[in-house]
Simulated assay, not measured.
Amino acid sequence: MRTRSVLSAALAAALLALAGCGANSGTGNETADTQSSGSSPTGLPPASPGAGSEETTEPEAPRPLRFTATTVDGKHFDGTTLAGRPTVLWFWAPWCPKCKAQASATSKVAADYAGRAHVVGVAGLDRNKAMKDFVADTRTSGFPHLSDENGKVWKRFEVTEQSRYVILDKDGKTVYEGVLPAGEGLAEKVSGLVG
């Protein structure tokens, strides 16, 4: 019986000694109990989740850019990809002569500011075939064109007529909305946003 009580006392003493090691005594022998207070068994701060990974968290896109659509070529388009750069949304219709007159200047701005600003055509008021023909005829395939047959993107930006530009700054705030005959002045507006 005496052996059992000596073993019990020794076990209790060992457990108390281990518990003492759990207190942050500065000995470098911290246990898992102290890891929650910001240290680790190595004495270094614990790694943050995802530390060392290439993955970064992108800031949330501004509300106006949180939309999806389909391009005239049938590809998925996510408006959040426009976040962080100035964006020109060009609302056009395939049968509109004013829109055809804007095509060259709009295409030039898309090429001149590639990598610094986005240009996206938003086609509406007709069927996709006519939209594709317009892009081919006007040689504006150098930037994406959305097929907005149902008017979802037009409604989102409160556009009620074709031949309209909506220009957003890098934060997604509308800085210009209106008509620019033959695209005149578009380059200057974009230049002012990219610096």
Rank of each mutant, 00 (worst) to 15 (best):
R2G: 15
R2T: 07
S8D: 13
A9E: 00
A10N: 07
A12I: 11
A12M: 04
A19R: 04
G20T: 14
A23Y: 10
E30R: 15
A32Y: 05
D33V: 09
S36Q: 13
S37V: 14
S39K: 11
P41R: 08
G43Y: 15
G43T: 15
P46V: 05
P46F: 07
G50K: 14
G50T: 14
A51S: 06
A51H: 10
S53T: 11
T56Q: 05
T57C: 10
A61K: 09
P62F: 11
P62V: 03
P62R: 06
P64I: 10
P64W: 10
R66G: 10
F67V: 14
T68K: 12
T68P: 05
T68C: 03
T70E: 14
T71N: 08
G74W: 06
G74M: 11
H76L: 12
H76W: 00
H76K: 13
D78Y: 01
G79A: 01
T81D: 02
T81V: 06
R85P: 04
V88C: 05
L89D: 03
W90T: 06
W92F: 14
W92E: 02
P94T: 05
P94H: 12
P97T: 10
K98Q: 08
K98R: 13
C99Y: 03
C99R: 04
Q102D: 09
A103G: 13
S104K: 15
T106R: 09
T106E: 07
T106G: 12
S107F: 12
Y113E: 06
A114R: 03
A117Y: 08
V119G: 06
V120K: 01
G121W: 08
G121M: 07
G121N: 07
L125H: 15
L125K: 15
D126P: 12
R127L: 11
K132Q: 14
D133F: 13
V135P: 09
A136Y: 11
D137I: 11
T138Y: 03
R139K: 13
T140R: 06
T140D: 05
S141N: 13
P144S: 06
H145Y: 13
N150P: 06
N150V: 08
R156G: 10
V159N: 00
V159K: 01
T160D: 00
Q162V: 00
S163H: 02
Y165P: 05
V166L: 03
I167E: 00
D171C: 00
V175D: 00
E177N: 03
V179D: 10
L180E: 08
P181N: 00
E184H: 00
L186H: 00
A187S: 15
A187K: 02
A187I: 00
E188N: 06
K189S: 06
V190Y: 14
V190P: 04
V190K: 01
S191L: 01
G192P: 12
L193P: 08
